[in-house]
Nucleic acid binder design. Sequence first.
DNA 1: CCGTATCCTTCTAGATACTG
DNA 2: CAGTATCTAGAAGGATACGG
Lengths: 131, 131
Amino acid sequence: MKRDWRCEDPKQQLVWAAATGETLRVLEGKWKIVIIIQLFAARGPLRFSELERRVEGVNQKMLIQQLRQLEADGIVIRKIYPEVPPKVEYTLSEMGTALGPSIEALIDWAFLRCEASGETDGDEPAREAEH
Amino acid sequence: MKRDWRCEDPKQQLVWAAATGETLRVLEGKWKIVIIIQLFAARGPLRFSELERRVEGVNQKMLIQQLRQLEADGIVIRKIYPEVPPKVEYTLSEMGTALGPSIEALIDWAFLRCEASGETDGDEPAREAEH
DNA sequence: CCGTATCCTTCTAGATACTG
DNA sequence: CAGTATCTAGAAGGATACGG
């Protein structure tokens, strides 16, 4: 089955828009994309402490929270080694790996935005003064 | 310049992860993706009232708010017709249109998830009982 | 090393009523 | 038609301290 999301049927569009909205919600959370990108970049499992170092600015509570949610949503897999000192590794699941093309497209778009705002002016318009 | 986000340089990875995180933030907000998909599907401008009907469940305040943010972030363009009764049309900007591949990839992934959770079992594991 | 438990602040969504 | 204003509840983020 192939999505033809630009089709004419308004009902179908509603279904897909909703489904995609729900799906995107899985990626929301201040640190999730960064975590996922780091896991992609690592090309293999990362320990908790490794992630803590690579995801700059995150604290333990947030990192754990986001990892647990990603795990619950089937994006990452958590593997515990019953050793002392404790060792826990996080990997992308098959579903997580399948995010590759989306991430790549988003990175491309991020670049496009940077270039667009960099060529005409020095800084971004950004969003501010809203109230 | 081409992104090679799976490269070895950890510094670069940090930069891209951060940039992509920032970029994704532009799409966050409960209704933005749905709005964007509807604008794609429409293949042309939509009036405020049209969007209100197509984005099911949204209220005026939220719709306006999300549209204003999308406008501030350069994703949509707002065109006002000085008529009475008032008429305002929203279109995807060039930057918004450039989101096409990302949206498509995300929709593909959304489908993959639906199929994966539908074939093995009836319901999703979902995320719950977190505290 | 890999987490929990508290507590606090800020941010977000939404209901509702009103206006040029 | 296309907004604005106000108010509220709840969620998300984060600092800090403690635990197996």
